[in-house]
């Protein structure tokens, strides 16, 4: 199948290895993956701050870039959440609706569409703490959030548990927000960074060597917080582990 690869701006600029791992992983499953070169962003930063009108052109550009693929896959839950749930600054033509419904976050794609049952190339003999970003947890429903009385499930844990050697730790507050929150991270930076300090400290107390997540934005924030308060922690995107990164 033909897949359009959406690499959000901060992954493009700061975490190219996450984009590479995503691309290689999709190629391992035999997909024809294309990276449309004129892509920029999904529009979320403006929409998230209330400036919906300001993201119309960006959304239109996104649709131009990603129209016509069987699937659009992105290694970022919050961007996919925006495309799927809030992408309404432009007229909802059939083309727009089509792109929105065909856009998937990487974990969802691997778990629900690809239905991967093994990652024979992947080995990660480390103690990891899983960070579900709020966008993947409560909007894309990657896992059962702790607030709900529903049967437990976790798509990222399902995938990661197929990786040889991996060991999981459980922090005291597994699905507490890390404080990134998009523009919240700068508009409310004092609270945002305090939440980040607490998040990385919680994982450190639980004995994690790595924090793994499907969202590089949360990891970028957490890494900045960990470095500032001197918590020794490594951060890795789930795509890198599933693609068999040698750590």
């Amino acid at each position: 199948m033909r897949i359009g690869l959406f690499i959000p701006c901060y992954i493009d600029a700061f975490f190219p290895e996450v984009g590479i791992a995503t691309l290689e992983l999709l190629e391992r499953f035999g997909h024809d993956v294309d990276y449309p070169c004129d892509q920029t962003c999904c529009g979320q930063p403006m929409a998230n701050s209330g400036f919906n009108t300001e993201c119309a052109d960006t959304e239109a550009l996104f649709v131009r870039n990603f129209s016509g693929f069987d699937y659009v896959v992105a290694p970022s839950g919050s961007c996919v959440h925006h495309v799927r749930d809030n992408f309404d600054a432009i007229e909802q033509t059939d083309e727009v609706k089509e792109v929105r419904t065909r856009t998937f976050e990487l974990v969802e794609f691997l778990h629900d569409i690809q239905k991967v049952d093994a990652f024979p190339w992947a080995r990660f003999p480390h103690r990891v703490g899983l960070h579900n970003s709020c966008g993947t947890l409560r909007r894309l429903k990657h896992a059962r959030p702790s607030e709900l009385h529903e049967p437990f499930f976790s798509k990222p844990l399902d995938l990661l548990s197929k990786v040889a050697g991996i060991e999981f730790v459980t922090p005291a507050r597994p699905d507490e927000c890390c404080g990134f929150g998009g523009t919240f991270s700068v508009f409310e930076e004092v609270v945002s960074t305090k939440m980040g300090y607490d998040k990385v400290s919680d994982h450190a107390q639980a004995g994690a060597e790595y924090i793994v997540s499907a969202d590089s934005s949360c990891l970028m924030h957490q890494q900045g917080c960990a470095e500032r308060i001197g918590v020794q922690m490594k951060f890795i995107h789930i795509a890198q582990i599933l693609n068999g990164v040698s750590a």
């Binding site: 493009d12 990276y35 924030h221």
Partner: peptide
């Protein structure tokens, strides 16, 4: 109150 991310050698775009 937090460190800025480390700049990689190249962007994903250039790598691609």
């Amino acid at each position: 109150h937090r460190e800025v991310p480390h700049a990689p050698k190249q962007t994903f775009h250039s790598w691609y």
